[in-house]
Amino acid sequence: MTALEIENLSIRYGARPVVSDVSLRLERGRTIGLVGESGSGKSSIANAAVGLAPISSGDIRVNGVSAVGRGGRARAARRRMQLIFQDPYSALDPRMPVGASIAEATLATGRTWTRAQRRSRVRELLEQVHLDPDRAGALPSAFSGGQRQRITIARALAGEPDVLIADEVTSALDVSVQSTVLNLLRELLQALGLSIVFISHNLAVVRYISDAIHVMRDGGIVDSGPTESLLDNPSAPYTRELLSAVPVLGERMTFEETAEP
């Protein structure tokens, strides 16, 4: 079954098109990667999906229900998607205990929660992201960057989303922390049967976590396919260019053809 369908999506900021005519599908329980450089429009898609940015045309459907527009159905459909942000330092309210931040996100489920239910749910979620549930009362400043990113993941899960959108979630982290966050996402993916849209500029990271990859450039998708075949036999020239630009450990870089812009 299809968890997320994006159809002919276009987004413009003022007169400037940032995303033009993008379509993609995400099956339930799968992960798709959106990879591209800055300005390619990948984050705009994420923002548009959850309603943080207006779209100019096209449709976004979650479980077959359109998430575009102001109506109650669209609004409910949008809540089926939750976003994890890049910078764990600005993604948590510095004056709100982390438990309260997570509890607030249960609103997205659309159900009413008793105080006790909410509290036990917060504990459960903190355990799920491998944090001490007794620390729910602490402020974000008591946590390290990697821990904060776990908390934002817990918050996203509190909405019981069908689709998780991870927008550059590891770019602000050191590699040692990045690996723990990636492992956590994989683990949750298997345990909860989540569907994930994983957005990153880092090809290796996207490759590691995604079943299929869409390569974006200048607001459009220039290449897509299952991870292995796309990266092992890149057909689009831009994919090849991206691949060749990724440094490989211990291999001397070659610069012949790329010196001129």
């Binding site: 007169a15 300005g39 429009g41 207006p54 910078d87 770019s171 050191d174």
Partner: peptide, 21 residues
């Protein structure tokens, strides 16, 4: 610096007609 912080994509709020000038 920690890992690369990607420049955020422009917010729609900054889009005005005068931006073209």
């Amino acid at each position: 610096a920690p890992g690369p912080v990607r420049p955020a994509e422009p917010a729609p709020a900054s889009a005005r007609f005068t931006d073209r000038l």
